[in-house]
Design a protein around this nucleic acid. Structure first.
Length: 489
RNA sequence: CGGGGCGUAGCGUAGCCCGGUAUCGCGCCUGCUUUGGGAGCAGGAGAUCGCUGGUUCAAAUCCAGUCGCCCCGACCA
């Protein structure tokens, strides 16, 4: 970076800013393998907290973790027609094992529906075995042509839930329920507001009946598909013969769902909250919530300041909160580094609150708290430091979500607009446009072709406009749906 | 796979047109002085210039090939 210590202003080149933020905050690095990414300890620390919370939420909804093989016989993929069509072009295939050509090539899983439903058919006999609620944490491989750190890598780490149910309605409810869990996590923990809804046929998962999704707006006004949940109907259970005996004594195919989120969420976090100073991590997910930077001007001051600083850190580290546990505090007592340098470094890493503590504070029994999000400084007394820090953190968590929400709404268009105007918007700053759609694949494809914008989803009722659009954005005929149009990652 | 750009120390680069084994900054190591917004001085370590071949007395530099990366498209979470 040489002398240029500031990050690239994101307005100029968002993509370069994103890359640099991720690399400089040491979240990830390029690997020697093209298109693959190494997640470094700092990036994993954030992901780990996400994973822990998600895992808790899955257990809370009755799901159990299991682990299925990395390799899938090639023929398995072919059993579901749409599925193989969707995934075959982007699979990595193993043809040699132990130095010998394999009789049947093995596909490195791009997703695990096929191998999991093959097992489900052995495990499910009766309606009493249902619902079967399974989750797997695993890495998968999709041979993408172009990759970006966290957002699209050849190999990525994710969570995939797979469930089997006795009725169609139950499967639909499950797919919806898990979409709600994702939404709660993204908004509550990541402070990243999302729009939920249903995907069009062109965008749905290969092999699904219906795909639901959460779409978030990044700071370049592009949409990020942050999580998906699929109602698979009986497509896979028919392909893999997942049958069960009903209470009445007949035989039925099971109804399946699958749903997943990936380390892409870390990319979403960076692109939602990052700024020109670097990363910004919401308190709930921050591996370090508060960093204490001690300041001294002499050896004598140093020992006095450090001694008290250590006491403060000890007190704060023991501070227990109801929902989010103990305060995660770090004392930066590195020597030979000026306080200012430490400030910039922790700001770049996104630690939500910094405490400056020097001789002047020591003498007056106080400390200075600085928020990462708006860099506002406040002097507080040490007597109530625990409450003050905990309160500030929860305020920041809320403010980050509200700011992201307001930014999204400020860049959304809900008035009925002409197609020419729409094209202008997409060529300019972009954004979320809620507009009518006649329901034809032709209109959808034409808009994509001409503007690069796609229907991200047909929003759920609570996200729809007060006045439903009347005409299709593209052809002008009667609108059958309200669609969310945007350019996407 | 098309179009553009780039490979020189851990990172970022100068030098290339006009051949003579390498510039500067950050970082790193040692010492002293520093520390309320990115420290200063002194000393030091670190590069077979992506790889292969060719031209030449001599190649980072010229020529050919090759590999890799980044950006823009097509594909996609």
């Amino acid at each position: 970076m040489a002398d240029d210590k500031k990050l690239t202003p994101r307005a100029k080149d968002f993509s370069a800013w994103y890359n640099e933020t991720v690399l400089r905050a040491e979240l990830a690095d390029y690997s020697p393998v093209r298109g693959c990414m190494v997640i470094r300890p700092r990036g994993y620390g954030i992901w780990e907290r996400m994973q822990r919370q998600l895992d808790f939420m899955f257990k809370d909804t009755g799901h159990q973790n299991a682990y299925f093989p990395l390799f899938i016989p090639q023929s398995f993929l072919a059993k579901e027609a749409e599925h193989v069509q969707g995934f075959a072009p982007e699979t990595a295939v193993v043809t040699i094992g132990g130095g010998k050509e394999l009789e049947e090539p093995l596909v490195v899983r791009p997703t695990s529906e096929t191998i999991i439903y093959a097992m489900f058919s052995k495990w499910i006999q009766s309606y009493r075995d249902l619902p079967l609620l399974i989750n797997q944490w695993a890495n998968v491989v999709r041979w993408e042509m172009r990759t970006r750190l966290f957002l699209r890598t050849l190999e990525f780490l994710w969570q995939e839930g797979h469930t089997a149910h006795a009725t169609e309605q139950e499967a639909e409810e499950e797919a919806r329920r898990m979409l709600g869990v994702y939404r709660d996590f993204m908004e509550g923990w990541m402070a990243m507001p999302v729009i939920t809804g249903i995907k069009t046929d062109a965008e749905k998962f290969a092999g699904a009946l219906r795909t639901f999704a959460c779409e978030a707006m990044m700071q370049d006004n592009k949409a990020l598909q942050a999580g998906t949940s699929h109602n698979l109907g009986q497509n896979f259970s028919k392909a893999f013969d997942v049958k069960f005996q009903t209470e009445a004594g007949g035989t039925e195919y099971a109804w399946n769902t699958s749903w997943g989120v990936s380390t892409r969420l870390v990319g979403g976090l960076v692109m939602t909250h990052g700024d020109d100073f670097g990363l910004q991590v919401p308190p709930f997910l921050a591996p370090i919530e508060l960093v204490v930077v001690p300041i001294w001007r002499s050896e004598r001051e140093k020992s006095r300041v450090l001694e008290t600083a250590r006491e403060i850190v000890a007190t704060l580290s023991a501070w227990e909160r109801r929902k989010t546990g103990k305060l995660r505090v770090h004392l930066d007592d590195r020597e030979g580094m000026k306080p200012g340098a430490k400030y910039y470094e922790w700001e770049m890493r996104g630690v939500p609150v910094r405490m400056e503590f020097g001789p002047r504070d020591l003498d007056s029994n106080q400390a200075v708290l600085v928020r990462r999000d708006n860099r506002v400084k406040r002097t507080v007394t040490l007597d109530s430091i625990g409450e003050d820090v905990a309160d500030l953190l929860s305020i920041i968590q809320t403010d980050m979500r509200v700011n992201a929400f307001e930014r999204r709404e400020a860049n959304s268009i809900r008035e009925e607009i002409t197609y020419d105007r729409f094209r202008e918007v997409m060529e300019g700053n972009g954004g979320f446009v809620y507009a009518g759609w006649c329901g034809s694949t032709e209109c959808e494809a034409a808009v994509k072709e001409e503007t690069k914008a796609t229907i991200r989803l047909l929003p759920d009722e609570e996200f729809r406009s007060a006045e439903a659009p009347t005409r299709c954005l593209k052809c002008g005929s009667t609108a059958r749906f309200e669609a969310l149009w945007a350019k996407a990652y």
